[in-house]
Design a protein around this nucleic acid. Structure first.
Lengths: 155, 155
DNA sequence: GTATGTGCAAATCATTTGCATTCTC
DNA sequence: GAGAATGCAAATGATTTGCACATAC
């Protein structure tokens, strides 16, 4: 359960990022970052905002929206998937890279490791002369529970 | 250039889908489908709407929005990626499945085949007891032109 | 001290919906 | 002829922006 052994905390990473970019750090930003890293769950802006509210933290939605590009750029979070009309994110700093297996019916998400993808990326980089930054690999289908219900409905 | 050799046209596929579902086909829907398949490009709703307009085809945006779920369900199109605040789609009927390599700077997209993914899917299906429906695999990075510019800027 | 960040309220943009009318089956 | 689909205009929901004030460096 503790892959969270590393030199720098997420806050340190952000502080360094801010310094290098000539930005400014604020208590609001640290509150948001702490909340994002407080659970392993994926999040969307509204969810995160409500989590902050229920913890009596006063941060506005625009502050969250304005922070997200910096969190992406500093590598603390990444876009996970688009669903229900908006993007969902996940924090990635301090976790191994993983891909998602998602149920189309109930939304259940399983994370899995896939080591063969890095080889593939190297091949692509060579073949197309790209500097690969990363990938998004999402497999969708029906989980054990949901696929049972679907086969009932199908003629 | 001609992978487009198949028994049924996209319109036939849609007509059959409509019949099976007890829906109704309309000239507007056929116009939209023809326009989608008129180029190999990815599209978003607004782009498609403008393409239709410039071809003097009178179809409203809501009609496009209302058609998209059916096109997804019938397997004629799929979501390609989320960018600039909205989803982009691509038509897939009559084309081999492929993945995307996309440049983060200029947006240039290269399509590539990846046969090893189907093996991976079979493994996942077994391991997690999922009925796999498909996947979205997008690799991002910087294309040959753009990566040159970036290294200039970097200290 | 300056310029960046904050919160609020208003604006914007993509998408959806209500409704009267038209059209498909 | 009944139920679907269309187009329009209005509503919704996520995200962005303008602005006055606060605050980090």
């Amino acid at each position: 359960m503790s892959v969270r052994k590393q030199i720098k905390s997420e806050l340190d990473v952000f502080r360094e990022f801010v310094r290098k970019k000539g930005l400014r750090n604020t208590p609001e930003r640290e509150i948001i970052i702490k909340e994002i890293f407080a659970t392993h769950d994926h999040f969307d802006v509204d969810e995160l905002y409500l989590r902050l509210r229920s913890n009596k933290k006063k941060v506005s939605k625009p502050s969250i929206y304005r922070l997200i590009p910096y969190l992406l750029e500093s590598g603390l979070i990444q876009e996970a998937y688009f669903e229900d009309g908006h993007l969902h994110y996940e924090h990635i700093y301090g976790h191994q890279h993983h891909c998602h297996l998602r149920c189309l019916t109930c939304g259940k998400t399983i994370e899995f490791q896939e080591r063969s993808l890095s080889k593939m990326e190297k091949r692509l980089a060579l073949k197309y002369d790209f500097a690969i930054e990363g990938h998004k690999f999402e497999v969708v289908g029906y989980c054990s529970k949901c696929k049972a219900h679907i086969s009932e409905k199908t003629t």
